[in-house]
Design a protein around this nucleic acid. Structure first.
Lengths: 110, 110
DNA sequence: CATATCAATCGCAATATTACGATGGATAAA
DNA sequence: TTTATCCATCGTAATATTGCGATTGATATG
């Protein structure tokens, strides 16, 4: 085991869980926050900003790139990253839709 | 390693990542969705609804209970779970605040 | 009391994640 | 061309997560 049984859940559930997982690490939160703040791109700077090794940052960047939350462009010898607006907006909407499903209940059931 | 270096991130970043992690599994998404739909509580039903063993469901319920997203009440020999409205709302707001930080950029930087 | 039912917990196996040093490939600069 | 810089990837170690069978504790019911 250690393997999620994705086949017993709906695509939507698997996708939403995957989206949460992409941001379920403080380094990836920090990276996206930094990219949001410096709307212009960056990269090696992230290694200095956060206190993680270059290989580790690269790995987190890859995960964020894989889900499409960020995109990177080679600029000479360095790589410039920035938020992918489209995916970001999709995440925002999907998360909002998830949380909005709950409607206040009067009676205290538990 | 395998251990997240929480100490190099801010409390907010660690907390937000933790919130994401709580929902970063399809079973926990499915459980919350089911509790949202049947606003009244449930429990052993979840074992039938999702196709996971009782021990596994119990473990996921515990995680959701730990972060406060759900709460449980003993009712005779069974346990009744439901959404914790307060925490749910807090999650909704926190996630919304995170995504709202990004403002559309005109120039294509990447 | 004896028995049945429900759910939490323990213990284990399998897999995933996190982190990093080392290496390598690409580009810029000398 | 040689050298330096930047970053992706590989390989590895440590830890975390997922899933479940088995057990246990609590509460009902006969």
């Amino acid at each position: 085991m250690g393997l999620t049984k994705s086949e017993i859940f709906t695509d939507k559930q698997n996708r939403l869980a995957g989206m949460m997982k992409a941001l379920a690490h403080p380094a990836r939160i920090a990276i996206t926050q930094h990219l949001v703040k410096q709307q212009a791109c960056i990269c090696g700077d992230l290694v200095e900003e956060l206190g993680l090794a270059q290989a580790t940052i690269s790995q987190h960047l890859k995960e964020l790139k894989t889900v499409g939350l960020i995109q990177g462009n080679v600029e000479g010898t360095s790589v410039c990253y920035c938020i992918n607006e489209k995916t970001w907006e999709e995440y925002r909407k999907t998360f909002e839709a998830f949380f909005i499903t709950y409607q206040r209940v009067d009676k205290d059931c538990c």
